[in-house]
Nucleic acid binder design. Sequence first.
DNA 1: TTGTACGCGTTATCAT
DNA 2: ATGATAACGCGTACAA
Lengths: 355, 355
Amino acid sequence: MKARTGKPSIKDVATLAGVSVGSVSRVINKFDNVGPELRERVERAMRELDYRLDHAAQTLRSRNSRTVGCMFTDVANPLYAKLYRIFEAKLRRAGYMVLLANSLNDPQWELEILSMFQSRRMEGVIIAPGNERDVAVLEAVEHLGIPAVILDRDMDVRQDQLLFDHSRGMKDAIMHLADLGHHDIALVVADTQTRPMRRRIEGFKAGLRAKGLKARPELLVRLPSSVSPAFDAVVRLLEQPARPTALVTLGTIVLADVVNAISACGLRIPGDISLVSLGEPDFARSHRPSISSVAVDLELVAETGIEMLLARMRNRSPSPSRRTVVPTQFVLRESCGPLPAQASATRRRDKDRGQ
Amino acid sequence: MKARTGKPSIKDVATLAGVSVGSVSRVINKFDNVGPELRERVERAMRELDYRLDHAAQTLRSRNSRTVGCMFTDVANPLYAKLYRIFEAKLRRAGYMVLLANSLNDPQWELEILSMFQSRRMEGVIIAPGNERDVAVLEAVEHLGIPAVILDRDMDVRQDQLLFDHSRGMKDAIMHLADLGHHDIALVVADTQTRPMRRRIEGFKAGLRAKGLKARPELLVRLPSSVSPAFDAVVRLLEQPARPTALVTLGTIVLADVVNAISACGLRIPGDISLVSLGEPDFARSHRPSISSVAVDLELVAETGIEMLLARMRNRSPSPSRRTVVPTQFVLRESCGPLPAQASATRRRDKDRGQ
DNA sequence: TTGTACGCGTTATCAT
DNA sequence: ATGATAACGCGTACAA
């Protein structure tokens, strides 16, 4: 008698069912060429032993792990959290589990994560590295050897990319504000050299240019990061002699700070100042007045991304890398209104409505 | 010559370095009994071949996967997202990666996740099932056979548990409000039959009792879930003849709705109504006035939880299950003030202070 | 200190 | 349709 210790293996199942291991394997993997009576015997034996397939052995032998790796800077960022949830659900339907890793913007850790993805034989990866420009990271991504989708990063590598068209939505927002009469439009972004910020600034300038407005450098606020406190910076912005009458700002963490700063300055939305959020935190929809925003459709992003990834996973021939752009949408809500009668008057308090 | 195809294995490294596979393995696993010259040769060979250890093979042979499983209802819940980030960082330091799964409250999916955790030989798991009372889930958790920490759930199983003392913090909050003179205190919670809600209601009632106040059933608002829109329900609450003068509500998604509803009713915080948030969304700290809250110290939770888990992983003998309770803290901020002069302002005249 | 040989649990291949 | 057996890549006794 063999040791009773440890978990039952496929062999134990075969013995108990009185068949060969090959047959058990065929039952497990749902091959169509197994006799119904044999299948029945095997399934009963599996139940009886409470048999669990050993994923490591399966991976070793079959050379695939049924796992997809996901590397984000931080799931605590609601954008990534929501995306992850959708990714996971869709991948699950395709039979995969997801290994998540937060890089926390540490390039060294990003390298290790990518290396682990290789060791662990991820069949595909979805990544948004924090360090677009780090040569080591670029190199690692380039030679990953795993089907990959890069999420909203400008990296010059031969991998599929899924990009958000920040510029377009931003431009639409600016043009709408300009049409409402605003010419002093401020922008609050993070100072990181990363694609989303660069593209947003591009769109911002493009929008102004399209309406013949000129960018006032003092209306461009750069926070140290997208999770930095913004209250003081915005108060300073709004106390300028010629304060902006419209404000476009990062969503998520920063947005609440901005709203508070506006209110602390005694300004009302949209009566005194119009507001647009970049990205769509729950806060934007639930706030009264509701806050206009520029954002991607997360369901669309996830759908497209997973589709790209699965396609690449199915066809591993070195076909040229794809680059898909999903649009950002300017969603108009109550926070945008016409220019106050006393345009950019320092602090006048009249309630005329000029349309 | 052997096939150039596929990734290099430990054998290729051994061949190139002119040593045995055993020696390479010893180098990899940092055994102390390897000659420095040999180690050098091996390491060079590994670099030259860009060798990656095969995690599946390693797991199969060594019987451990260096992986911890994490099952939450939803990472898009900021509480879990933040916890996950800390867990991951701490586990990484201990040499583990984390497999994350969102159960989305689906009991069937929870069973599958737990089963996968077994197949994949997780060395430990941290779980917060959505279905505390589901017998199948209970059964699966009970017989998991993996070191586990259950997070803030009342499950009668022989596994370590890490519980949040919701009741205590809630009681403190209520007592503080009572001391400020409030006797009509409302509570907005979700209608789920889950530990956090139950304990909060317990603490709520305990607080009232301790101050000789009686619970008015019409001041207990039960939302369908903790992510349901709350605006209308709160407006109805505040339009009652004898409206509450203080309000304790779920944090996260719901909080913003509540604040908006309060403001829509023309009430001011804390002048007309005091507010306390359950849980500590960023919103609570950044809002002006800042919002008092009842919450756990996430860093402490993570620290304690990981410690419990690692201890259990190190000592797999069937020692009795541990049950640790982390305190919730009532953090007083600007949103709590004394009872307005005109108690129940809308219709009532002043009331006595009863202590 | 270093090398050899076997086994981990599974799938794939070749017989039958 | 089913059985026997060789890999898969690594760890680890045990021998040298």
